[in-house]
């Protein structure tokens, strides 16, 4: 009897060994591309160009960088597909996030977050877009800058200065959800076009007066985070 069990175990192990080698035969799934464009006044954002915000301050942007993370697709049957290891640093005016191996199916919603989730935000010794050499990590207080916006302003009362928004901390991790039905077929590529409106950082629930709010870091950035959560991205 012992011998039979032994052979059975060997048979099982060899089946496992065989199947573990056949990964290449898996059917290729579809691809999703998130085309991200930063805009202002309904046109691609131009760095160092003067715009006017909701408060009436003139401002120009010198640097804009943010994390978009944890892309999740909701299938029409209600199940979700979470893209693994999904941390994407947007540090250009327009950028494509290409997600491969998406399971075939019809999806009704797409969601993602601005920022880095609490687990990933608890250590900065990480690879890929989370590599601290991207200069989006804090060293003395472990965590990432989720949303970085730096520039110059001339306030309504003609005060000139610079502004620095480095928004991070777990409370400012904001998840956004957009509804659009798409079908991913074998070898197909589906594009989503998202516009990130820089004007929206200064308005929405909270109108930002650059004369009084020109430095926001970590914990003090809640008002700005509420703005980017509510109206920064639009799905075109």
């Amino acid at each position: 009897m012992k011998k039979i069990i032994k052979y059975f175990v060997i048979a099982l192990v060899s089946i496992f060994a065989l199947t573990s080698c056949t990964e290449e035969d898996v059917v290729t799934d579809g691809t999703v591309v998130l085309k991200i464009s930063n805009v202002a006044d309904d046109a691609p954002l131009v760095l160092d160009k003067n715009y006017t915000n909701a408060n009436g301050d003139q401002f120009s942007i010198e640097n804009i960088k943010y994390y978009l993370s944890n892309v999740t697709l909701t299938n029409e049957d209600g199940t979700t597909y979470e893209v693994p290891d999904s941390y994407h640093l947007i540090d250009n005016i327009s950028e494509d996030i290409t997600l491969t191996d998406i399971p075939l199916g019809t999806y009704t919603d797409i969601s993602f977050s601005i920022g880095v989730d609490a687990v990933a935000n608890s250590s900065t010794a990480q690879p890929g877009d989370l590599d601290p050499s991207n200069e989006m990590a804090w060293n003395w207080d472990t965590g990432y800058k989720f949303f970085l916006l730096e520039g110059r302003y001339i306030s309504k009362s003609d005060e000139e200065g610079t502004f620095t928004f480095h928004i991070g901390k777990n409370a400012n991790y904001k998840t956004l959800k957009f509804t659009k039905t798409i079908t991913i077929e074998e070898n197909s590529t589906i594009e989503y076009n998202f516009e990130g409106d820089v004007q929206a950082v200064f308005s929405g629930p909270n109108t930002i007066n650059l004369e009084t709010t020109n430095s926001a870091h970590g914990e003090t950035g809640g008002d700005i985070a509420d703005n980017y959560a509510s109206n920064f991205f639009t799905l075109k």
Partner: peptide
């Protein structure tokens, strides 16, 4: 403020008054 020694290491490596390096 640093949660682990790996995250901590980037502090002194890059601080302008300590080792003053750029990670790249």
């Amino acid at each position: 403020g640093a949660n682990d020694l790996a995250s901590q290491a980037f502090g002194p490596l890059t601080h302008p008054d300590e080792m003053g390096s750029n990670l790249n």
